[in-house]
Design a protein around this nucleic acid. Structure first.
Lengths: 190, 190
DNA sequence: GACCGCCCATGACAGAAGTCACGGGCCGGG
DNA sequence: CCCGGCCCGTGACTTCTGTCATGGGCGGTC
């Protein structure tokens, strides 16, 4: 519904045509192959593939297409990963609607468009301090699984899970796993 | 942005006029007083007041206005509470856009509009089994606070917090507080 | 008045979580 | 080659969680 509404909004702009829409991240590249696309507008939260992953694949498959990433959550880590995946613009959904069409026009002129507040936050925070395994374990702990379950799922001993979680708790500055998950989520580290 | 886009979408329908928009739940009633409103379209996740709370106040202040509740999350508990607050329709955002205008027309004809799948889920699940205090404690535990912190915030002893949490864990069928929070959230019990 | 459910509390106990020290293997950089 | 970081593991220890039994007070209902 939101996608169709945004499409309607963009269609009202005289200089913008919506040539294709897909509901899933893993349908993005295929749609970009079969239509004349100048700009792709991607949401991060999508079934199939996230918008960030889709951006990376689209960049590889069709480097000429400009990419605008749109998301509900202005998490600095999202911004960082989106830009690393080749996005040309990064917008949050609570920005005014006028910025959307404007961002599309600007990326077509070769500019990069980023919310300045978010850019500052991303820079201030530095890179993701979690190692690959720490992220895995923390993500597995997010749903409330016990250490033994996580170990089983990731083929690790229970003690190792404890150690990784302890490290993640230290690095996030949290006081337990639940807080660590929340903080890592907010920063976009997961 | 989403709100403006939905407004644009609805404006394209010949028989619908968007006469007012607000960004916060606590501005809904005031806007309904100063405009000629037949139908109010409310999102649940809003700053200030939730759409459900806003629906209740609007129903009291202006009983004649039809209320359509729109939400990202199709949680049965949301549906239940929305209907109890006097909503005439309940839609999820991942429904096709055409349903939105259609729902507005139907509530104006006096009908109630509810996603049948969601209605079945709400009925199958029964009412919220958590007591008021269990909800309070569970909500306070959601961010990862320790029992002692929760007790301090809610003016309870640590042991009492433990007891309420234990009860909530039983009732949700969870195996620890984190899972209990997740389940209660999914069902819309918080 | 007896009963029930909710509220709040205490104490005891088993188990899970979190910290710390320590070890080995692997790989890349100076 | 040595060092550092990441990976994976063990063992010991403290603290926090979760469960259970048990109690009193309060408000409803039959």
């Amino acid at each position: 519904m939101v996608r169709e509404a945004l499409a309607a909004l963009l269609s009202l702009e005289g200089d913008i045509d919506v040539v294709a829409q897909v509901a899933r991240g893993d349908e993005v590249v295929a749609a970009a192959q079969t239509h004349e696309v100048e700009v792709a507008l991607l949401d991060i939260e999508m079934p199939g593939l996230t918008g960030i992953e889709a951006a990376g694949r689209l960049r590889k498959a069709r480097p000429g297409i400009k990419i605008v990433v749109l998301t509900t959550f202005g998490r600095p880590g999202y911004l960082r990963r989106a830009m690393e995946s080749g996005a040309d613009a990064f917008l949050v959904k609570d920005a005014p609607a006028s910025q959307l069409a404007e961002a599309i026009r600007r990326v077509l002129r070769g500019e990069r468009v980023i919310d300045p507040t978010l850019a500052a936050a991303a820079l201030a925070e530095g890179a993701n301090p979690l190692t690959s395994r720490e992220r895995d374990v923390l993500a597995a702990a997010a749903d409330g699984s016990a250490n033994a379950d996580i170990g089983g799922r990731l083929h690790l001993s229970e003690g190792t899970v404890r150690n990784y979680l302890s490290a993640a708790i230290q690095k996030t500055g949290a006081r337990n796993r639940t807080e660590a998950v929340r903080i890592a989520m907010e920063k976009g580290w997961l």
